[in-house]
Amino acid sequence: MSKREAFLQATVEKSVENFLHFIQLHKGGTDPFDLNELLQELTRKQKEELWERLKNLLVDTLLAQPVEKWQRMEDDSDDEMEVEHSADLKQAMAIIDGVTVVVTASIPVVDENVSYEALQESAVILNGVLRVLPKSETALQFDIQRLCEAWWEKGLEGKEELVKIAFVLRIRKSLDGKSMCSDINQLWHFHQALLTFDYSSKESTEVKDLLLQCFMSVKHVKKEEGKRFLSFLFSWNPNFIKMIHGTIKNQLQCFPQSLMVNIAEMYFRAWKKASGGILETIEHTCIQDFMHHGVHLPRNSLVHPKVRKVILSEMHHKVKRKASRY
């Protein structure tokens, strides 16, 4: 029996150990078993059968170990029941991880000639457990997040719903004190995912709060991809522009004066690309407000030099220069 046939047979509940063995072979890279190559060689019917089996395996696993029972594993517990439960949970996490690996590897081979409903169902289920995984399963959480992002990038059916949690996690990661420049780069890479959120819906409350925190982050304001991302956020909704502007004004006294050039650049980029109601809101709510405060703020105010000498001079100069071209 070829490894391809053996792998296909392993994707049933009674052959879980064999399935997990193949996943480890794929991850290890020492054995000549390449899941990506195998998937490319499968016929349309074999792909569809594989994805249906994967979905069933995932559903059976979650029925046996429902989310309600998940809790952090206690490896040092002396309770025999706890040890048994811990072993069952580890097995469930291993299966979920294996399904995640295969679903992610399957995304590149999806085309118009194959039905991928079962694959999509598995992706939706995995997306559903993304936020409730045990805290110890950080690697699995990231793998499911990447699956959802790959689904979005491929432009597959249901991408709008699958990318939402992944996008929120990207924002959180970029705001983490230990975040790196690459985290902000990735946030900008997936910036269009914001448009899948309905601004007026309750589900957008969390993302609004996180996005406003980005405007208080020096790393986001200074980095090129961060400025691109922040400027893009002005285009989401006119009401959000008012929240952005209020957040920045409240933060001015905390920002160093050297950062004002970056903030001015951010406003200018947003204004330059805006039109309609967005443009009107930026001009009336933001630019005119800065001009008003630049004139009327007391000279002994801590933010007066930041508003008048930096923001107004930078932004007014660029806006005037652009207007003179027309």
Rank of each mutant, 00 (worst) to 15 (best):
S2W: 01
K3S: 12
A6R: 10
Q9K: 09
A10L: 12
I23F: 02
D31L: 01
Q40T: 11
E41F: 00
E49I: 02
E49F: 08
E68A: 14
E68I: 08
K69T: 14
Q71N: 09
Q71D: 07
Q71E: 15
R72M: 05
D79L: 15
M81K: 13
V83E: 13
E84K: 09
K90P: 01
Q91D: 06
A92W: 05
D97R: 07
G98H: 01
V102I: 09
V103W: 03
S106Y: 04
S106R: 03
P108M: 02
P108F: 04
V109C: 06
V114Q: 09
V124T: 10
G128C: 06
G128T: 08
V129Q: 08
L130F: 02
L133D: 01
S136R: 09
E137H: 03
T138I: 07
L140N: 05
R146G: 03
C148T: 01
A150V: 12
G155Q: 06
E157R: 15
G158T: 09
E160S: 12
E161T: 14
A166M: 08
V168D: 04
L175T: 02
G177R: 02
K178G: 09
M180Y: 09
C181T: 07
H189V: 08
H191G: 00
Y199P: 04
S201L: 06
L210E: 11
L210W: 06
L211C: 12
L211G: 01
Q213V: 02
F215T: 01
V218A: 00
F229S: 04
P238N: 04
P238I: 04
N239V: 11
I244H: 00
T247C: 13
Q251Y: 10
C254Y: 12
Q257H: 05
S258N: 13
L259D: 04
N262F: 12
F268S: 01
G276D: 01
I278W: 00
I282L: 08
C286R: 02
V295M: 08
H296L: 13
S301C: 02
S301R: 03
L302Q: 12
P305N: 06
V310E: 10
M315W: 11
H317D: 06
V319M: 15
A323Q: 11
S324N: 05
R325D: 00
Y326E: 05
